Simulated scan of single mutants.
Amino acid sequence: MVAYLEHANITVPDIDAAIAFLKVVEPDFVVRHDATPEGSYRWCHIGTDQTYIALQEPHLDSNPKHVGRPYKDYGVNHLGWVVEDLSTVVERLEAHGYRKGIPVEPHPHRRRAYYYDAAGFEWEIVEYLSDRAEEQHVYPSG
């Protein structure tokens, strides 16, 4: 078996807003579980049978801070999702008013776009134009 990333766990200020963003990126994502155990914080899993995002509210006894500055503070800068049709996903994100992230250079074998969700987390959306890994993962020289 080859190792793969099954899930990422993210503490968010608003689970419903995070679910809404992810459903815009991939309408077929399902909420696999959503719970608020008595005396605890809410958490959920959204995605597919193979991969998902675990979303959770801050622990009840915490004093959460705003999201860090991507690429400047320690922590996750962005998470990337592979999609079949980037143009359609971008149209949906724009129609829902999500803010575009960093610009990207053209690439012969992939298209990418970065968007911020309502909490300020950055997400990379990728469409591969080739099935060949050696083409998908060509990096600029330098």
Rank of each mutant, 00 (worst) to 15 (best):
E38I: 08
T88Y: 01
L55P: 10
A133C: 01
L5K: 03
S141K: 15
A17R: 01
D16P: 03
A8P: 00
E127K: 04
A3Q: 10
P27E: 03
I102R: 15
I102A: 13
V104E: 06
Y116A: 00
G101N: 02
A18S: 15
A133V: 06
S62I: 03
K100N: 02
H7M: 07
P13V: 08
W123A: 01
K100M: 07
E94K: 15
Y41C: 07
S62H: 06
S40M: 14
P37F: 04
V89C: 05
A3R: 09
G120K: 13
K23I: 00
R110L: 15
V2T: 13
N9H: 11
P106D: 12
L129E: 05
A113Y: 11
H96I: 12
R111A: 05
Y115G: 00
K100S: 07
V90Y: 01
Y114W: 14
A20V: 14
K100T: 07
V30P: 02
P37K: 08
V31P: 10
F121N: 13
V24L: 08
H7F: 15
Y52I: 03
E127A: 04
K100H: 07
P70S: 00
S141D: 15
L93R: 00
S40W: 09
P140N: 01
W43A: 14
D16W: 01
E124L: 00
V126C: 04
G97R: 04
H59V: 05
D14F: 09
S62T: 13
A20I: 15
V89A: 05
